[in-house]
């Protein structure tokens, strides 16, 4: 008797774990078939673009997903993303490597500060990171005078974006390696297990001796580094840094992370799942480009998709659905005295 619900739960969990990959395969099929039906051409350049998106917005998504697995919500990655691009372009005027390193170091400091605040003061990370995000936005606006900052060394862009094997570039290879390294760390090391433990039950983790504080600080640093890597490489490759990218990158990242099977309550989700989510969403965006849809359609599509995913990921949806089907058995109904008697 006891094993069967257990098995069912296990099956359900594995099915949920596999969903990001199923979605990716479905989206890939759509991407291959739909343009043909519509009389459009998909070339290897479209696949190259896919990985270019992975190298910018993809890194931002992994950055956001990492803290979410630990049950935190770090809005500041969006600020780090923009700030790092600006730093790379400003300080990398002579040597792009210097710019890149400066961006990474500054981002790591921001991440450490934020992680320390969240961990030591037990602050709600959404509020702290919103403050940090606003501050970074103000900082980029001040440094850039609210104008796009051009980068004059166009060779850097050539080196970063030259096609390898048709569909890769130095930029996307760096991004893929970085994400792979994070994925291996999260899957096979104690650090990764601890992060998931913190995300699923922080009290229990503390009790059994997980060093929650230091893990959170390291995690916020890693997250800041990833988003800074994405932002700075993007700015160098575009040869321009935008002071305020708006919420679009964050919308992409949130959708990708949720598509990737990360739960907002923390504890679930894998980096590989997030990667699948990123590719699925990039395919959708590329599809919209190939089919030449007007911009408002993609705005509606991305906003709508985020709401749909947030809807599907909402913990209450299951309970609500159950209460709809079986109105007599309310899930969270308060115990009433009459029933006890």
């Amino acid at each position: 008797m006891t094993t069967r619900p257990g098995m069912a739960r296990l099956a359900r969990r594995s099915r949920r774990g596999g969903l990001p990959y199923v979605l990716l395969v479905v989206m890939l099929l759509v991407f291959v078939v739909l343009p043909v039906v519509a009389g459009q051409q998909v070339t290897s350049f479209n696949y190259y673009n896919l990985f270019q998106v992975f190298a910018s917005l993809g890194l931002l998504s992994v950055a956001l997903g990492l803290t979410m697995i630990a049950g935190e919500f770090d809005l500041s990655v969006l600020g780090t993303y923009a700030f790092a691009g600006l730093v790379a372009v400003k300080l990398g005027a002579d040597d792009p490597v210097v710019g890149l390193l400066a961006a990474l170091v500054l981002a790591a400091l921001i991440g450490a500060l934020q992680g320390a605040l969240v961990a030591w003061f037990r602050l709600p990370s959404a509020a702290v990171s919103l403050g940090v995000y606003i501050a970074l936005l103000g900082l980029t606006a001040t440094i850039s005078d609210s104008k796009t900052v051009p980068y004059n060394n166009l060779n850097v862009s050539d080196v970063l974006d030259r096609q390898y094997l048709e569909i890769f570039s130095l930029r996307s290879i760096i991004a893929i390696l970085a994400v792979a390294a994070i994925a291996v760390t999260m899957t096979y090391t104690r650090f990764g297990r601890d992060v998931r433990a913190i995300g699923s039950d922080r009290r229990a983790s503390l009790r059994i001796g997980v060093r929650v504080d230091s893990i959170l600080v390291v995690l916020f640093v890693l997250s800041a580094l990833l988003s800074a890597l994405g932002g700075s490489m993007l700015a160098l490759s575009l040869a321009a840094a935008t002071p305020d990218p708006g919420f679009d990158p964050l919308i992409f990242a949130l959708t990708a992370v949720l598509l990737g099977g990360v739960s907002l309550r923390g504890g679930t989700g894998t980096v590989l799942g997030i990667a699948a989510g990123i590719l699925t969403l990039s395919l959708l965006r590329e599809l919209l480009t190939v089919l030449a849809t007007p911009t408002y359609v993609s705005s509606l599509a991305t906003g709508g998709l985020l709401l749909v995913v947030a809807f599907a990921a909402a913990p209450g949806l299951n309970a609500w659905w159950l209460s709809m089907r079986r109105p007599t058995k309310r899930v969270a109904e308060p115990p009433s005295l009459s029933r006890v008697g």
């Binding site: 919420f247 679009d248 964050l250 919308i251 949130l254 408002y296 359609v297 705005s299 509606l300 599509a301 991305t302 906003g303 709508g304 985020l306 709401l307 947030a310």
Partner: peptide, 10 residues
């Protein structure tokens, strides 16, 4: 955020 993007689109 999602609702904001939808409103901008609409």
């Amino acid at each position: 955020i999602g609702a904001g993007a939808l409103q901008v689109g609409a």
